[in-house]
Simulated scan of single mutants.
Amino acid sequence: MTVDDIRAAAARIDGAVVRTPLLPATWAASDRPLWLKPESLQPIGAFKLRGAYNAVARLDERVRRRGVVTYSSGNHAQAVAYAARAFGVEATIVMPDVTPQVKIDNTRGYGAEVVLVPIGQREAAANEIVADRGAVLVPPFDHPDVVAGQGTIGAEIVADLAGVDAVLVPVSGGGLASGIGTAVKALSPRTKVIAVEPELSATTTESLSADAAVDWPVERRARTIADGLRTQPSEFTFAHLREVLDGVVTVSEEQIRSAMAVLARKARLVAEPSGAVSLAAYLSRADQLPSGSTVAVISGGNVDPRLLADVLAERA
């Protein structure tokens, strides 16, 4: 997967995906200018639409008509459902039974069939459905077409803020960070790409330290409030992460919640926990980050309303 694949993806998704702006955070530190890339403004409320739409669009029409299947904690689920509806094909989505109800309802709202399973069984269940129905799997991150779609974010950042010093990107399965990193390093080699993940699901941090992919039990990763960051890189994405990341930092649960409140109150943006980790790093891990102009990718805004209310009430 290269920057040429990302350019092709950008042309393919043009008109179907919002080209999100860079929003200047005038309330941020004056010596470290900050811009927010609000992927929460996508039609499905998260960046996942880019990769899902690109992957579905790339399918041969005869293959696509057999239907698409995926497994996801929520945002990729909604993205595949949305893309499938756009192309007039059936979508079956396997979701963990602990997924926030708002994400389940939204996925069904796009016309997809939702199958709920225990969190550790979602991939196996999706593969069974593919085998039984002859449908095609659109994985959440472990596919070059998906990663290329996510990489369009990086190309937009470099086009809109030439010479940006650092880009902060949430990381979990690694598709977003791999795609953005590939685009940024090709188009602005001096820019540092820093991945951010929860302390309670720090598989990328540990893997890069060991220079080999490590495996955390799903129950261990599921402890974090950031439900969209409970997976871990595949061999494909980890190989890209090793090439394009300049570092990775972790943030605590309290720091994530605090960043959600800052986004709501100062940026007027609703962010889910996974979408707030990049700002959490900017606010709480400055000593571990490059200096200079910074972009924080706000990857999604599909938050349980009760959780958001609790976060804001805690910081009233």
Rank of each mutant, 00 (worst) to 15 (best):
A271W: 02
A271F: 05
D246Q: 11
D246F: 05
S278Y: 00
G292P: 09
D287S: 13
N302D: 07
A286Q: 14
G275A: 08
A264R: 13
G275E: 03
A264Y: 15
L283C: 11
E254M: 11
M260H: 01
E254C: 01
A271P: 02
S293K: 14
V277F: 01
R268N: 14
I256H: 00
S291N: 14
S293M: 03
V295P: 11
D304P: 06
S284W: 03
D304Y: 12
A267F: 01
A271K: 11
T250C: 13
L289W: 13
R265M: 07
L269H: 01
R268A: 13
V248Y: 04
V244N: 07
A259M: 08
T250H: 04
A264Q: 09
I298V: 15
R257N: 00
S299A: 13
A296H: 12
P273I: 02
E254D: 15
V248I: 07
Q288R: 15
D304Q: 05
L245I: 07
A259G: 11
K266H: 14
I298Q: 05
L283M: 12
L279W: 01
P273M: 02
A261W: 06
R265Q: 14
G247S: 09
A276Q: 11
L269R: 02
A280H: 08
L245D: 12
R268I: 00
V303Y: 07
G301P: 10
P305W: 08
Y282T: 10
R268S: 14
V251S: 05
A286L: 04
A276T: 10
V297D: 00
A281P: 15
P305E: 01
A281Q: 10
K266Q: 15
T250A: 06
M260C: 12
Y282L: 10
G247C: 04
V248G: 10
G275C: 07
L279N: 03
R268K: 15
A261V: 15
V244Q: 03
L245S: 13
P273R: 02
V248L: 00
A271M: 11
R285G: 07
A280I: 11
A276L: 12
R268E: 13
G247Y: 03
V303P: 03
E253P: 08
N302S: 09
E272Q: 10
V262N: 06
G292F: 05
V249L: 07
K266N: 12
S291F: 01
L245C: 12
L269N: 03
R265F: 04
P290M: 10
N302C: 06
